[in-house]
Design a binder for these strands. Structure first.
Lengths: 154, 154
DNA sequence: GCTCCTCACTGAACGGCATTCGGTTCGATG
DNA sequence: CATCGAACCGAATGCCGTTCAGTGAGGAGC
């Protein structure tokens, strides 16, 4: 994981369809070398997968909400219960008053209500508190330079 | 946007490196037809871009937190201020007591604190409330079938 | 200091697949 | 019924992903 790997990751995050020749040029490498480095990044699971960004509104998921889930019991083994609800895009155990935080996308607020109903049905859930997003400023992938931000440049 | 387009989107979300021949087979199409449909999905911005999923921990961003940002003023024009902080991955205007919700990834909790300091420095921000994720159950892309979930099948 | 080994890169060659295009079918429109 | 357009198939072309032999730098061992 040196600065060349990070440059490759940045390039691939921006556009994973570009040729290895262009990728290598951006990182100061030949196409073969770029290919080899990317292959290793995949093998090490630094690159988990290559995927496409889909416009949520275009597939009927224009409503975005975050839901704090309160519980009466330990929720550490309930991951599958949340994963079974397809409208839930993320689920995290959190520190604080609630115990689980989930990110939900639905087509309408009625469907959001239905998702809340299904969350209530999960064992141990004692309450929810939903927060609806009115406007999204931006959503972007994690920066491969995250580690650099507070350490002095070498 | 018919069921074939949705099948293509699902396939591409799972693995955008597969050949158009495989893609077409999964959707009951020839390679040429699959290519043409995907081209149109890109042109319509249903597919925003092709990218790679990077392991946050591998690039020094192992700490995940959600921050509720309270403000004294209207924050609708402050998107750029949040975007200027690279550790912020998402920023949304929300309904409710706080006015902005941001998703943050950093290497350490010390760096998280530094991000909070920079958020405080944004014009109009009057307070923050951070929630740290202890464990992530899952993170996944939006389902192209979201619209189907509560409407009867046609 | 010298040699050996490993690792990463270059440049070229091969083959697969992305991309394009002509022809066909089907449905809608007038 | 005739015309038009949209969508698909199958094949051809050429680009580019993938592999490989060769080269050089760096480190370990003696």
């Amino acid at each position: 994981m040196d600065h060349i790997d990070r440059a490759l990751l940045v390039q691939l995050q921006q556009d994973a369809t570009q040729s290895y020749a262009a990728l290598g040029e951006a990182a100061g490498l030949s196409a073969g070398a770029a290919h080899e480095r990317v292959r290793k990044l995949r093998a090490r699971d630094v690159i988990r997968r290559t995927t496409v960004d889909v416009d949520p509104a275009a597939v009927g998921a224009g409503v975005l909400a975050y839901v704090m889930v309160d519980s009466a019991a330990w929720m550490g083994d309930s991951g599958a219960d949340f994963a079974a609800i397809p409208e839930i895009l993320e689920a995290h155990i959190i520190a604080g008053s609630a115990s689980v935080l989930v990110k939900v996308r639905t087509a309408t607020t009625e469907q959001l209500q239905d998702v809340l109903r299904r969350i209530y049905a999960i064992d141990g859930v004692s309450g929810t508190q939903a927060t609806v997003a009115l406007e999204t400023f931006f959503e972007r992938p994690v920066s491969p330079h995250a580690g650099d931000f507070s350490s002095p440049q070498p």
